[in-house]
Write a protein that binds this DNA or RNA. Structure first.
Length: 1021
RNA sequence: GCCGAAGUGGUGGAAUUGGUAGACGCGCUGGAUUCAAAAUCCAGUGAGGGCAACCUCGUGCGGGUUCGAUUCCCGCCUUCGGUACCA
């Protein structure tokens, strides 16, 4: 019988399907194991050879665990909402659902070809209403929740409402918008329904807000920060601008600390955890208030233009000793305001900040800054605000108005790309106003500059040019004083020295202190004056949750009189309506503005008002769109469905709950999650956030849903470029160049000897449509050649470097493809795809087959008989090695172990069923097709997955002798065979007497002989 | 700049706890088979020297710890990934 991979693949694919070999039940006596792959977006390009890498690894592990006696959940599904299908719909009018359906069909075929053990009865698709019903449901739970800091968890919003009605919000320690005003119960109870609802939005875990977002005009939607790379959209590479829009947001910041702390409890790679920590960006510091100097107080000469000088800081010591002399009496300054922020004001919020203060008129108010180095407070010589800072208008003196406004205009015109390209350039403008150092009372000028970001901290920075390079650069540019504050800062004229080493100087009461002492002393002093306190600042922003697109989950909410309300849970799912064109409306509404046939709502009877609970929609009888009711027209972002899909696999078709509690309690959490590192701060952070919320809500049992996570490396493609004489480069289709001798635009080429040189068959036809032609070279025989430039890049349809796994499977067989991908190197490493070496794996499988049948004659070699000690040793060494390697996800070395085993059995001419049977089970996770075939050839009943996984017997591995390498001073000089049971003393005695040893130690005394049992001997002279 | 990971033959990569560096595969060289080629099989293959036994060097670079370092420590260099006027 001959080895024909394609033939046995067909046979076993059918067998597995007919016998539901991979179907998994919830429950049973076996221990559970949940393995998860990041589910793919079904793109039109189909799977390329990079996608299956992780799937193969998990499939091996899943089969291995199953053979080891576990009940293994190994599901697969599709993240099937997304932009490409919608873009295609805009271009062609094809419904995204249809495109998606076709793509999924193709994916499924490709996946089946590789022989995965997925339980397809559990397949999920995020774009199916039976699935997104629960995405919408979770959204509703988030809307009905607020984060209580005292309980340190999410609580029902109706609890908050009850407390507001009895005690106001002053005692409530909850996460809310920064502009939330203090409120008494009386004020709350006097609010109208609308005012109350708007007020509650400041607390809800998901809420609409007017905010600056990344708007991509070309895609017609907003993008989250992690969907924007280098100022352009990650998908498509289109320009992105900042735009103020009303958007739904998720209060992920409420979970910032728990998202950081939870990382300590999961087995994820350190680099990935670091990425998440950096993304959350927790920094410990202090907020400090700088009183704004009254214009009436004595001031330095008004600076003009760019050459501002406040020389008096340099000529006189910043702070007189004793601290009793101050420029300004701080106690007379009334503190009446809170920090402004970049956000718009809610309607019910009393106007705060500038408007009510009249900063310039009254000479009161203060600027709040956040700093991680409050100890450097005495080194502050100026203040810098973001150009968009709310105070700028009132702080600007009439003389400086033109300059400031010109600068603001210039800063606003700069795109993110510009800003990033010119980070080293110093620019800014002086407002004409001053503020006072809260401790020293020193008067310092206030500038604006775009190196200060409005979106971080308070949008204001206390500048310490001696300790911060950017501040230093700014001080040099505008000729501002630089005061060293640590005795270690010696080269302050050359650059800033951001150090914590040394003792303080020029710093009043902290002079002589260390960093730690000073930080505490300054905070204490600030707190005593009510001008500062310790504070933790996060880089993490609340996550924008709206997309102005069609192909996504509809938000289950509607608007009445400017207030958002949820629809009833009983009305879920809110089905995505059909529309005729997938474009924004003429009035600029999202595509859903075109919908007229909202299917499921409002079909139910108007809900009865529920006792006082204001989060319930209590008057929804008229159809939406009539009587002031309007649907929310934006849809959810791509990360909505993927934030919880792993629970749906546990109970995929349940109509009444996202997953039955019994199922969730059984599977608990994902034991092993495998996916690409590109989701480090997107999906993997959002899903942890949703999981924490679901945990708080009592829906799931674990605070972290993925116990262990492995990031598989990316398999890159080889992109071939054809250089035209105009300097333009064309992509060359890798597959066509390899397989069909045919290239771009009817130019016929043939693979030349050199990998990247191609012979032209008909160079008279050139791709003039691309505005140039190829510069052909000719060889001595008059043949034409051109040279292609290869580069390693991500595989994508656009660069025509996609390698389809189907082609590999057709050519070498699925088993070979699977093992080869594993053999390529460590799972976590990225590597360019190359088929060099696949013949080695192919040869291995044929060799394995040849233990059963003669490859030439087809004669059966398989025989009965007692295995010899040698044969057992070969087998059990392999069992041991493969077990260990799978446990540490080192699949490449496991494949090598198989090769060694088969090579040795072949040399030993071993065809014994007793040996081969165990080997087949061992190979089954890696090469399931050939394993099933050989298993049945052995006369066993399929499936091989129901076999028992072999364990090794250490007795078979015992050697009768061990060859010790003998080193002299750590250099290997000889080896000598000792009996395995020789004691270290015996070994030492013999080694000392060896001729080779005496030769090397000639004339010198042996100081020591180190014998490590079964390892080596080292003679020290 | 900051954070993280990694640098080993011609090549992909092994070396699991500080203990024989280069497993396994590809490629290459020589041989067998063949009319010939492909395929297959056998042998060799880190570099340098030597007829040979054998010797010297060798895991990015420079130091250190150790009987012994690809592995641990210190200082650099390079590459890749992430991130960035984050105060």
């Amino acid at each position: 019988m001959e080895y024909n991979p394609n033939h046995i693949e067909q046979k076993w694919k059918q067998f597995w399907a007919e016998n539901q070999t991979y179907k998994v039940e919830n429950g049973g006596s076996k221990p559970k194991f949940y393995i998860l792959n990041m589910f793919p977006y079904p793109s039109g390009a189909g799977l390329h050879v990079g996608h299956p890498l992780g799937y193969i690894a998990t499939d091996i592990y899943a089969r291995y665990k199953r053979l080891k006696g576990y009940n293994v959940l190994n599901p697969m599904g599709y993240d099937s909402f997304g932009l490409p299908a919608e873009q295609y719909a805009i271009q062609t009018g094809t419904h995204p659902a249809l495109t998606t359906e076709n793509n999924i069909k193709r994916y499924r075929e490709q996946l089946d070809n590789i022989g995965f053990s997925f339980d397809w009865t559990r397949e999920v698709r995020t774009s199916e209403s039976s699935f997104y019903k629960w995405t919408q449901w979770i959204f509703m739970q988030l809307f009905n929740a607020y984060y209580d800091k005292t309980a340190d968890k999410a609580l029902p919003i109706k609890d908050l409402v009850a407390r507001l009605a009895t005690e106001g919000n002053t005692k409530i320690n909850a996460v809310c918008d920064e502009d939330t005003p203090p409120l008494s119960a009386a004020v709350w109870n006097n609010m109208s329904e609308k005012e109350q609802q708007l007020f509650l939005l400041k607390y809800r875990l998901t809420f609409p807000e007017e905010s600056f977002v990344n708007w991509c005009a070309k895609l017609g939607t907003v993008l989250s920060n992690d969907e924007v790379k280098e100022g352009v959209s990650e998908r498509g590479g289109y320009p992105v601008e900042r735009k103020l829009m009303k958007q739904w947001a998720m209060r992920i910041t409420a979970y910032a600390d728990r998202l950081i702390d939870g990382l300590n409890n999961v087995d994820w790679s350190e680099s990935l955890k670091e990425q998440q920590r950096n993304w959350i960006g927790r920094s410990q510091g202090a907020s400090v208030k700088f009183p704004i100097a009254s214009p009436k107080s004595p001031s330095p000469p008004t600076p003009k233009g760019g050459d501002v000088t406040v020389r008096d800081l340099n000529t006189s010591p910043p702070t007189p000793k004793g601290g009793d002399v101050t420029v300004h009496d701080l106690n007379t300054i009334s503190i009446t305001t809170s920090t402004p922020n970049a956000k718009g004001q809610g309607e019910t919020t009393p106007p705060l900040g500038v408007g009510g203060l009249g900063v310039r008129g009254l000479g009161v108010g203060e600027l709040e800054v956040f700093t991680t180095r409050v100890d450097t407070l005495f080194g502050v010589t100026f203040m810098v605000l973001a150009p968009e800072h709310e105070y700028v208008a009132v702080l600007t003196t009439p003389e400086q108005k033109d300059e400031i406004e010109a600068y603001q205009k210039w800063a606003a015109s700069r795109s993110d790309v510009d800003r990033m390209a010119e980070t080293r350039k110093v620019s800014g403008a002086f407002t004409g106003s001053y503020c006072l150092n809260p401790l020293s009372g020193v008067k310092i000028p206030i500038y604006i500059a775009d190196y200060v970001l409005a979106s971080y901290g308070t949008g204001a920075v206390m500048a310490v040019p001696s300790g911060d390079q950017r501040d230093w650069n700014f001080a040099k540019q505008f000729n501002l004083p630089i005061v060293p504050i640590l005795d270690t800062q010696k080269y302050i004229d050359a650059s800033a020295d951001n150090t914590k080493e040394g003792r303080y100087i020029n710093s009043d009461f902290i002079n002589g202190m260390s960093y730690k002492e000073a930080t505490q002393a300054v905070i204490t002093a600030l707190e005593a004056k009510g001008l500062g306190k310790g504070k933790i600042q996060y880089r993490l922003r609340n996550a924008v949750f709206s997309r102005q697109r069609y192909w996504g989950e509809p938000v289950p909410a509607y608007w009445k009189d400017g207030v958002p309300y949820l629809i009833e849970e009983s009305e879920l799912p809110l089905v995505l309506p059909e529309i005729e064109k997938y474009l924004p409306t003429e009035t600029g509404e999202p595509p859903l503005g075109r919908a007229e046939n909202w299917k499921y709502y409002p079909q139910a009877a108007p809900p009865a008002p529920k006792g006082g609970a204001i989060d319930e929609a209590d008057a929804v009888s008229p159809p939406l769109g009539v009587g002031g009711l309007e649907y929310e027209l934006s849809t959810m972002p791509g990360w909505a469905g993927s934030s919880w899909y792993f629970y749906r696999y546990m109970d995929p078709s349940n109509p009444s709950v996202f997953a039955d509690k019994k199922a969730v309690d059984y599977w608990q959490q994902v034991d092993l999650y495998v996916g690409g590192t590109e989701h480090a701060v997107g999906h993997l952070l959002y899903s942890r956030f949703w999981n924490l919320f679901m945990y708080d809500w009592g829906l799931v049992p674990e605070t972290e849903y993925a116990k262990k996570l492995i990031n598989q490396g990316m398999i890159q493609g080889r992109t071939l470029y054809l250089n035209l004489n105009t300097g333009r480069r064309l992509f060359v289709n890798v597959a066509l160049a390899d397989e069909k001798d045919r290239l771009y635009h009817d130019v016929y080429l043939k693979m030349a000897n050199d990998d990247n040189r191609f012979e032209g068959i008909n160079p008279n036809i050139d791709p003039n449509t691309e505005g140039g032609h190829i510069d052909w070279e000719t060889d001595e025989q008059g043949r034409f050649f051109c040279t292609l430039t290869p580069e390693v890049e991500k595989m994508s349809k656009r660069t025509m470097n996609v390698v389809n796994p189907d082609d590999m499977v057709a050519k070498y067989g699925a088993d070979c493809f699977r093992m080869y991908e594993m053999f390529l190197g460590p799972l976590e490493d990225s590597k360019p795809w190359s088929t060099t070496g696949i013949t080695g794996v192919s040869g291995f499988l044929r060799k394995l087959w040849s233990l059963f049948y003669d490859l030439n004659t087809g004669k059966k070699l398989l025989a009965a008989g007692e295995p010899t000690a040698d044969e057992l040793k070969i087998l059990h060494a392999c069992i041991k090695k493969v077990n260990e390697d799978i446990e540490r996800f080192s699949f490449n070395t496991a494949v090598a172990a198989f090769m060694i085993c088969v090579n040795e059995l072949k040399s030993a001419k071993c065809h014994k069923a007793a040996i081969l049977k165990e080997l087949v089970v061992l190979v089954a996770p890696f090469a399931p097709f050939i394993a099933e075939e050989l298993w049945s050839i052995l006369g066993e009943t399929p499936s091989v997955l129901n076999a028992v996984y072999p364990t090794h017997n250490e007795d078979y591995l015992k050697e009768s002798a061990f060859t010790y390498p003998i080193s002299i001073n750590g250099k290997r000089r000889a080896e000598y065979v000792f009996a395995a049971d020789a004691s270290t003393e015996d070994v030492e005695k013999v080694v000392r007497a060896l001729e080779i040893v005496t030769k090397w130690t000639e004339g010198k005394a042996i100081k020591k002989v180190i014998v490590i049992k079964d390892k080596m001997v080292n003679v020290v002279v």
